[in-house]
């Protein structure tokens, strides 16, 4: 699904990713953990195609196709979805209007007509039920005045609507209480299939109790310094990151 080879990226002369290798197959859930400032969110942004980051070396392939030259929206059209750590507010644009625009722009890129209104409403109803979203929520302005939990739930709702091939969840657990965490995780679990893949970026092991990863990678100083199964996450939770730093330093 996603294959990253020797990826180097920098911003404003500052090197952040220093040779990332990652191979995520369809049907898999990968987690990337690591201390603050290790480059986790940068990796998410670079995969999504954020322009501030300069990729100097290496390549990113989605389903065998090199996506280096694609714009952010083209990557989105190909099925990359990024659930933001800090989703932005867009006053006056309702959740419904936003997701409708998003879905139809994606369809248009694929040469499809706009989704008929009736079908759209049905889909919205289905997906909002899946994520236990109150219908009133959908007519509010996007993320404006949303609680932390509502913002994240809204991200997962959009993910459910767009049905991406690769979903990157950037610190989705931050700012969530335990109930919200459960709802969000359940949503992700329901959306998982053999045809898509999930990349979870997280600082803590907590979310991984709910969304169980097939592989866990530790990112430190711009490199993946350790990979393992979900047991690695428990080990990190218990021992912290210092031993990783020391190992990496050696």
């Amino acid at each position: 699904m996603l294959k990253i080879t020797n990826l180097h990226a920098h911003i404003d002369e500052k090197s952040i990713l220093k040779g990332i290798n990652l191979d995520i197959k369809a049907g898999e859930v990968h987690a990337i953990m690591g201390p603050n400032g290790s480059g986790k969110s940068t990796l998410a942004s670079v995969i999504a195609g954020k322009e501030e980051y300069e990729v100097e070396k290496g390549e990113i392939k989605l389903e065998g196709q090199n996506i280096d030259e694609l714009s952010v929206e083209e990557r989105a059209h190909k099925g990359i979805f990024l659930s933001f750590q800090y989703p932005v507010e867009i006053p006056g644009v309702t959740v419904t209007n936003f997701i409708k625009t998003s879905l139809n722009e994606t369809r248009k890129a694929k040469g499809l007509q706009d989704m008929p209104a009736k079908e759209m409403l049905k889909l919205i109803r289905e997906k909002s039920e899946l994520l236990e979203i109150d219908r009133k929520f959908l007519s509010r302005s996007l993320n404006q005045g949303f609680s932390g939990g509502e913002k994240k739930r809204n991200e997962i709702f959009q993910m459910a609507m767009l049905e991406p091939k690769l979903a990157i969840l950037d610190e989705t657990d931050s700012g969530l209480d335990i109930d919200a965490l459960r709802i969000v995780a359940n949503g992700v679990n329901k959306l998982k299939s053999e045809d898509n893949a999930v990349l979870i970026i997280t600082h803590y092991q907590r979310l991984l109790d709910y969304i169980v990863p097939d592989y866990v990678h530790v990112l430190y100083n711009g490199k993946i310094v350790k990979s393992g199964t979900k047991e690695l996450a428990f080990e990190l939770e218990e021992k912290g990151y210092d031993w990783i730093k020391q190992e990496a330093g050696n």
Partner: peptide, 9 residues
């Protein structure tokens, strides 16, 4: 960027 990421140019 947020909009772009959701496929909106």
């Amino acid at each position: 960027f947020y909009c772009n990421q959701r496929g909106i140019e």
